[in-house]
Computed example of a mutant assay.
Amino acid sequence: MSAPHDLPTAAQLVAAVREFLQADVLPAVEGRVRFHTRVAINVLGMVEREIELGPSQAASHAERLASLGVADDAELARAVREGDLEGDPEGGALLDVLAEIVRDKLAVANPGHAE
């Protein structure tokens, strides 16, 4: 939580809406509305996890990119395309960084797939 905002936090508000949809709405609807309710529940879960994990993931991501000598994702993509990642002839550091990037994305998008 950061000033000037009070409780509940944004993550808590998102969680409350997600829980309402899951506990009260989902059992009461069918068909298309049930499908869209499930989608909304999943989206709210993603938003909740991004709010909670995003700041630390962003800091870790910046550190990983810096370890490869690139400033951002666009520069990383260019370096991969052009084979410019010097000092990593076997690609081990790059593969480690890419694996961590994917793990972070999965931790937000669908934590169950990270296992």
Rank of each mutant, 00 (worst) to 15 (best):
L7Y: 12
T9P: 09
T9M: 01
T9A: 12
T9D: 10
T9F: 00
A11E: 08
A11Y: 00
Q12L: 08
V14W: 00
A16Y: 01
V17I: 15
E19M: 05
E19A: 14
F20W: 13
F20S: 07
F20N: 05
L21P: 06
A23M: 06
V29W: 05
R32N: 11
V33Y: 10
V33G: 05
T37V: 11
R38M: 09
V39R: 13
A40F: 00
M46K: 15
M46E: 15
M46Q: 15
E48F: 01
E50D: 14
E52C: 09
P55K: 09
S56I: 10
Q57R: 07
Q57H: 14
Q57E: 10
Q57K: 01
Q57M: 14
Q57N: 11
A59R: 14
H61Q: 15
H61F: 13
H61N: 08
E63A: 15
E63I: 13
E63N: 14
R64F: 07
A66T: 08
A66P: 06
S67W: 03
G69V: 03
G69D: 02
A71R: 15
A71V: 08
A71M: 06
D72P: 11
D72M: 05
A77N: 11
A77T: 13
A77R: 15
R78V: 03
A79C: 14
V80F: 06
R81M: 14
E82L: 05
E86S: 10
E86W: 07
G87V: 00
G87M: 08
D88I: 00
G91A: 05
G92Q: 12
G92R: 12
A93V: 06
A93S: 12
L95M: 11
D96F: 09
D96S: 08
V97H: 00
V97Y: 01
V97A: 04
L98F: 02
L98V: 14
A99F: 05
E100Y: 06
E100K: 11
I101F: 11
R103C: 01
R103L: 09
R103K: 06
